[in-house]
Write a protein that binds this DNA or RNA. Structure first.
Lengths: 265, 265
DNA sequence: AGAATAGTGTCTTTCAGACAATATATG
DNA sequence: CATATATTGTCTGAAAGACACTATTCT
């Protein structure tokens, strides 16, 4: 029997036909009281001219997490944002070129940190507001094509352009729906919403509530929202009062500071 | 500019160095009032002799879902069980042979349906009971190596053999922990537990409760469990009474029939 | 009767949702 | 003062958790 060292030397990775692996990033932000998603217009085949989720091939020397972080730097000029793996899409014919599986990531970016090339250049990018009247299939399979209770996805571009699912490249409509569902599901038991704050070291509860409302797609009761957030976060010390807001319309809000549990001390 | 057809013809997928893609299946079952996981002992390098999650390379003509279904047929002789994607692990050095990313799946199999080769043959397989005293990091990153609140994973083999994380191949200890966390998190808002029932068309609430207890790792209050299950499932018609159990010790239990919402109509 | 398991009832505390009322800023 | 926003308080019904009690079978 050969030793482990011999085995590793003789191992030939090309004995299997490998699929291509890409990483797609859903870059979400909240502005104008609405949830928005960054899309880019494809300037190559296939799906030339259609809008797509930014992505790129996974390099051989980086993990998917690293590729996602790299890609969001390149595409949105931002780093150190919350980034989490969403789902891996692997249907055989999802890309007409060749076999491509895509590891989708979800990023939450404060609007002020987001920098993208909105011009009509080689890689035209745009922010689309998202409306997603969700179906109730909480446990639905992300890659099955025909859910019985299909939720309706509506994307509105900066110039009021409304694009339907058919204007999206590949299976990206389904990926977007999966991401919105995921965000809604995790909203109330994770710190997801805090990733959208312009300044986590000084935010008001109203600002946080508007983020929740944008993600959920409906209004929340002001008093009840305050009560639950303060109960869940203030008692455990994850948010602390930081003094009053200045120069606003109406009564100044108390500003809070958010510190992650295993944060930078 | 070339047409789409020309583009597709000229496209060369080998211009990028592709990683290998595998699909790993965490085959869970509940027996003896405890959660169990099927592992196989590796008979090749690397990690020769260590226990590992069954898996295999993704074929070029099948989706990850299909590969997972195929693999669980091959390994556990079972089909038509609940199978869901868990997470994709892609750290650069997780496999010493070459670059391998692994799409992990989670399967819930009734013990009676599970058939594996327990013998000490070429692919020795064994069921290990799982104890996982979880840390509280609900939103922890599955692939980060050093969680502050590392939960302790203990696997016990059929002959009482206790294996620690170091006896597991690759990053499989982490994958297993991620799976247990996922199951615990989804237990009370999905139908996950029903996937372990020996006969979903005739089960008692005690049987269902034992499954919940096995997954959670602690006892549940009998009365409160009945109340919540009946409220959540009986009112919506997803479980219905089916008559009394026969020939058991103690008072015979009411048997229920579980029908999934978008079931086989 | 006694053991074993199934099922019901009750009490308390907590929480969610609806909504009213008060507080503090600007113009 | 009117307006706008922030913040607090109150009421009700639902739900969770703890725990005692009753019911039906077998030996």
């Amino acid at each position: 029997m050969q030793s482990e060292q011999q085995y590793l030397q003789n191992y030939d990775p090309s004995q299997f036909e490998h699929p291509s692996v890409t990483v797609d990033i859903l870059i979400f932000t909240v502005t104008d009281k609405k949830l928005h998603l960054l899309l880019i217009r494809r300037n190559t085949h296939p799906f030339l001219g259609k809008w797509a989720i930014p992505g790129g091939f996974l390099r051989i020397d980086e993990s998917a997490d690293q590729a996602a972080a790299r890609r969001i730097r390149e595409e949105a000029g931002v780093k150190d944002v919350h980034l989490e793996q969403l789902y891996t899409f692997s249907a055989v014919n999802r890309d007409p070129r060749t076999r491509v599986i895509s590891i989708a990531y979800l990023a939450t970016v404060p609007f002020g940190k987001l920098h993208y090339s909105a011009g009509t250049g080689a890689d035209e990018a745009a922010l689309f507001s998202i409306e997603c009247t969700a179906g109730k299939n909480s446990s639905g399979h992300p890659e099955s094509s025909g859910s019985k209770e299909d939720e309706c996805l509506t994307l509105t571009g900066p110039d009021g352009e409304i694009i339907t699912e058919a204007s999206l490249a590949f299976d990206h409509a389904r990926i977007i729906r999966t991401a919105v569902q995921r965000m809604r599901g995790k909203l109330d038991y994770t710190d997801l919403a805090f990733g959208f704050l312009e300044d986590p070291k000084a935010f008001s509860l109203s600002e946080l509530r508007l983020i929740h409302e944008a993600i959920l797609g409906h209004k929340l009761d002001i008093g009840n929202f305050r009560r639950t957030i303060k109960r869940d976060y203030e008692a455990s010390g994850r948010i602390t009062e930081k003094g009053l807001e200045k120069g606003a319309v109406g009564r100044p809000a108390m500003l809070y500071c958010f510190s992650q549990e295993d944060g930078p001390l």
